[in-house]
Design a binder for these strands. Structure first.
Length: 304
DNA sequence: TCGCAGGTGGTCG
DNA sequence: CGACCACCTGCG
């Protein structure tokens, strides 16, 4: 398949660790050389940053309140040169059709960060920490499956469940460096399975949710708005917002999970139980950029 | 052994 | 409608 090189990506707006570890995806694995291998959109590729100023790749991760005050008048990171990205097992056609939109490379993240940074001092710190986050444009069905599995679950087990599901019931996405990778099963494949069939996947009580949702998709098609999304079995407010944000480009979505609740309580002083107040705060202060704000805040609080 | 992890559905007042 | 609570599974 070959390799494809992407040049001139603003260094301050792109960091593979931030992108793949900020909670939006579960199928990318870090390699010893710092690159990431993953399967998405029916392809398996490896992504690696091969050029760029290293100072931007590992900035000060934590800044003191005093430093933050100094940062008050500074723009967020974003003007520190460019990086070069190498995508292995990829040609130009795949890059243009798949990976460029997947990585959201047409969006100006510097601008988004500037706008959000105006809001308050906390989001500014969060952006400074997770400066290279980008919101991936993921396949809707895969996003639905992933986040239904994610509920009341931990990351290693979520990843394990998704891999089990793919390797047991999905089609091959090809062999890369001697290892075979699999796509997630389609709705029609999943809809025909029983809870017993899904036993080896170790989904627990989520197996029923997945089958019910697959049946609904077979009957009614993929959801096209939040209302249809929320009507699905196993999709509550948190999961619906994640699917909207990561699979439907609904960038005003503000998924509130246990970590975001922690942010809103610890950093913004909102009562931990008052989900409604958190939603209101996000709507009023982050508006159409709520999803981006959520990602920076989520990634930041998890580091503390 | 028990609580917990990127919540949701069901059941009560 | 808001406040509980059980729930698969695996890990510390």
């Amino acid at each position: 398949m070959g390799q494809f090189i992407v040049k001139n990506i603003p260094a301050g707006d792109f960091n593979l660790d931030h992108i793949f570890d900020c909670g939006q995806c579960f199928r990318w694995d870090k390699q010893d050389d710092g690159s990431y291998t993953g399967v998405a959109m029916g392809r398996v590729v490896n992504m690696k940053v091969i050029e760029g100023c290293t100072c931007c790749q590992s900035p000060a991760t934590e800044i003191s309140d005093q430093m933050a005050a100094i940062f008050e008048n500074l723009k967020p990171k974003g003007n520190y040169g460019n990086i070069t990205l190498l995508i292995d097992n990829c040609n130009e056609e795949d890059f243009l059709n798949i990976w460029k939109p997947y990585l959201d490379l047409n969006r100006d993240y510097g601008k988004i960060k500037s706008i959000l940074s105006e809001e308050d001092y906390i989001i500014r710190k969060a952006i400074n920490y997770g400066y290279g986050i980008r919101i991936l444009n993921q396949d809707l069905w895969e996003t639905m499956v992933s986040f239904i599995i994610s509920q009341n679950n931990n990351i290693p087990r979520i990843k394990g469940c998704i891999e089990n599901l793919a390797s047991n019931f999905g089609t091959s996405a090809g062999i890369y460096k001697g290892k075979e990778y699999f796509n997630l099963p389609t709705p029609s494949v999943l809809a025909k399975l029983s809870i017993e069939d899904l036993g080896p996947v170790k989904l627990g009580y989520r197996a029923r949710y997945l089958i019910e949702t697959a049946k609904s998709v077979c009957a009614n098609g993929l959801p096209s708005n939040m209302e249809e999304l929320s009507s699905l079995c196993g999709v509550g407010p948190k999961v619906a917002n994640c699917i909207g944000l990561f699979g439907m480009s609904k960038y005003d979505s503000f998924p509130i999970d246990v970590w975001v609740r922690r942010v809103m309580q610890t950093l913004y002083g909102i009562d931990e139980k008052d989900i409604k107040a958190m939603e209101t705060y996000a709507t009023e202060n982050f508006g159409n950029y709520g999803g981006f704000a959520q990602q920076y805040l989520f990634y930041y609080i998890r580091s503390l």
